[in-house]
């Protein structure tokens, strides 16, 4: 892949009824980096995330994801409303109809982006391994006849999926819990399982929504290490929302700061630390006041 940026967000706007959650958000994420999206509560971080991952349909702007060897417009695959011009050009009409009928956030994942959730969303009444197997749905042998007759090809594909699942269980240190129900795990374990599940879809970029929330310091430490493994060993780009500034500054190559639905600063951790706008946004402080992050 020649392109340097894996994700390009241009002039993203999101309105909920009359509330403007995002006004003109623009930033790029470099391939192979660990980037963080920070900002005070209510700044619109999760809204950006939900737009990126295709759970909200942005009101305006553009999101381009270049992964899996192609460019994907996140807004387009969610299915846009028909336009007058579509009725003249059948090709455009059919494409739009296709995305209207079969489009949705799952296509964003298939394009190479996966995510975790702020309020953990595991399949609680399924076992830990099964959670990881579901994530590999697009990669396993889904041939109905093959599965019912239990053919060689099917067994091989299942075995491979299990191996991959156990590999990721090893990475997040959950092998001993493989046959437990996901809902029985502790909070920290559930967070780790969710990351493993996101990685099982083989993404090029993984978006983590507050991965360290509710973790104790040693768990956060382990998480930091894990994120480095994702970046260095698996060449996965990581984008995270996080409130733990220590961790963000420690791990990130690039930070985007949001406030009131706008990007107020971006750059490396050192730039951000000393940026007066960021400090003011976080502490509501008068300009010139001495604050350290």
């Amino acid at each position: 892949m020649s392109q340097e940026n894996i994700l390009k967000v241009e002039n993203l706007v999101m309105h909920f009824g009359g509330i403007k959650a995002l006004n003109d958000v623009t930033f790029d994420i470099k391939r192979g980096s660990v980037s963080a999206l920070i900002g005070p509560n209510g700044a619109g971080k999760t809204t950006v995330f939900n737009c990126l991952t295709g759970f909200y349909k942005a009101t305006g702007g553009n999101i381009m994801l270049s992964a899996n060897g192609k460019e994907t417009s996140v807004i387009k695959v969610l299915g846009e409303p028909f336009m007058m011009t579509d009725f003249i050009s059948p090709v455009a009409f059919i494409q739009r109809l296709k995305y209207k009928m079969f489009g949705g956030s799952h296509l964003v994942n298939r394009a190479g982006l996966s995510r975790t959730f702020q309020n953990i969303r595991l399949f609680k009444e399924m076992s830990v391994v099964e959670n990881l197997l579901v994530a590999q749905h697009m990669r396993v042998n889904r041939n109905l006849m093959g599965g019912i007759l239990n053919t060689k090809a099917y067994q091989l594909a299942e075995e491979e999926a299990l191996e991959r699942a156990f590999y990721w269980l090893g990475v997040v240190d959950l092998v001993d819990f493989a046959n437990r129900l996901a809902g029985e795990l502790s909070y920290g374990q559930q967070r780790r399982l969710e990351i493993a599940r996101a990685m099982c879809t083989n993404p090029e970029i993984v978006c983590l929504d507050e991965p360290a929330a509710g973790l104790n310091p040693s768990e956060t430490e382990a998480l930091t290490k894990m994120i480095r493994v994702l970046r260095d060993e698996h060449k996965t780009t990581v984008l995270l929302i996080e409130h733990d500034m220590g961790m963000v500054m420690d791990i990130s190559d690039y930070i985007v700061v949001l406030d009131h639905g706008e990007v107020i600063a971006d750059g490396g951790p050192d730039d951000i630390k000393s940026n007066p706008k960021v400090i003011a946004a976080y502490l509501g402080a008068e300009e010139g006041e001495e604050v350290t992050l």
Binding site: F16, G17, T46, N50, F55, Y56, F117
Partner: peptide, 8 residues
């Protein structure tokens, strides 16, 4: 009715 916004 108001369109429902899905909570993610």
């Amino acid at each position: 009715g108001k369109p429902a916004v899905e909570k993610v």
